[in-house]
């Protein structure tokens, strides 16, 4: 057993310490195990409706959260569990929202697609494809109006990248120099439609060119590449230069939602991505091969994550259903919230 402790600045890990890398490993693993558990609870009928899992895309949010600072905002679509865990929201509260219980982030009234946390600056959880894009620019508008230097990460998928309101937003974000990072999570399928069947030009990061918004493509299966691109985008936005586009090429292993048989792609395609490009395996190998962690170290992390996820599932089952009074609350605010 290798007794060597990981060095704080390992030479073989450019721009990242072993501690940081271990943190990415842990954060990505938490999302994966959490999502697997959510899939299991869905299968048991404990989670209802639509449930869109993030498995395969973990490096995107973990890499970008590593580039964010306190007070930065984030907003995304309905495939939102990973974003919430990555920004530090409590797995218990997320899982209990999935089971529709009182202990959930929205007291059981939002569900998988609609969760929020003012404390963590997470603004949802939106179910209409593309609608979160102007909302995200609006959050950035508020920061600029108030004169802060915060930035907003506005996530959307390759499917949403064809919505008209996205381009209306690009125009105004550039015109008004809003501090917003448009993160296109290109997982290559808009529900069941492959990008080449829906999209006339494949390079989504160039979609801002007509508005003068810089953009770049990023390998979304490499958390370090995502972090580096995130740092660059944040620097651009925070310095007042306006919006930035990151097209992060990623892949979802599961169907669009739990009820998607995913017949639009081959089993081999999915298997190949899992075996050759998996973001978590990639970091795991870096840690082991660089001698920054031992198998036992990683097993200990696995065990720790499993315990967190199991605890969230227990909490989500044990938390009571919301009281019937909740049906009639939160429709109107009495005072500013």
């Amino acid at each position: 057993m290798a007794a060597r402790k990981p060095s704080a600045k390992a030479a073989s890990l450019p721009n990242v310490s072993a501690e940081e890398l271990t943190t990415y490993y842990r954060d990505m693993l938490l999302i994966r195990r959490f999502e697997e558990k959510a899939g299991q609870l869905y299968g048991m009928g404990l989670i209802g409706g639509f449930c869109h899992l993030y498995i395969g895309q973990e490096a995107v949010v973990v890499g970008l959260e590593a580039a964010a600072s306190e007070g930065d905002k984030r907003i995304t679509s309905y495939r939102d569990h990973g974003h919430m865990l990555a920004c530090g929201m409590d797995p218990n509260g997320v899982m209990a929202e999935l089971t529709g219980r009182e202990g959930g982030y929205s007291k059981g009234k939002g569900g998988s697609m609609h969760m929020f946390s003012k404390e963590k600056h997470f603004y949802g959880g939106h179910g209409i494809v593309g609608a979160q894009v102007p909302l995200g620019a609006g959050l950035a508008f508020a920061d600029k109006y108030k004169g802060t230097d915060r930035v907003t990460f506005t996530y959307f998928g390759d499917g949403a990248a064809n919505q008209g309101q996205v381009y209306e937003t690009f125009n105004m974000a550039a015109l008004w120099a809003l501090p917003v990072i448009f993160v296109i999570e290109n997982n290559q399928y808009a529900m069941g439609t492959a990008q080449k069947r829906s999209t006339s030009t494949p390079d989504l990061h160039t979609r801002g060119e007509a508005f003068g918004i810089p953009g770049e493509a990023v390998d979304g299966m490499d958390v370090l590449a995502v972090k580096a691109a995130g740092d660059k985008a944040v620097k651009h936005c925070r310095s007042g230069k306006g919006p930035y586009i990151l097209e992060i090429k990623t892949y979802r292993y599961r169907g669009h939602s739990m009820s998607d048989p995913a017949k639009y792609r081959t089993r081999e395609e999915v298997q190949k991505m899992r075996e050759e490009r998996d973001a978590i395996e990639h970091v795991r190998e870096m840690l082991l091969q660089g001698g920054h962690a031992t198998e036992d170290d990683l097993k200990a992390i696995d065990k720790e994550i499993k315990a967190i996820v199991n605890a969230s599932a227990d909490f989500a089952r044990e938390s009571p259903e919301p009281s019937l009074d909740e049906l009639w609350t939160d429709i109107y605010a009495e005072e500013a919230v």
Binding site: P134, L135, G138, A142, K146, E168, T169, N171, M172
Partner: peptide, 21 residues
């Protein structure tokens, strides 16, 4: 003044309200 783009600027305004304006 906004461009003629109701869907977009309404979304931006709603986001600004989420953000405290």
């Amino acid at each position: 003044d906004t461009p003629i783009t109701e869907h977009g600027f309404t979304g931006i305004a709603v986001g600004a309200a989420f953000g405290g304006l």
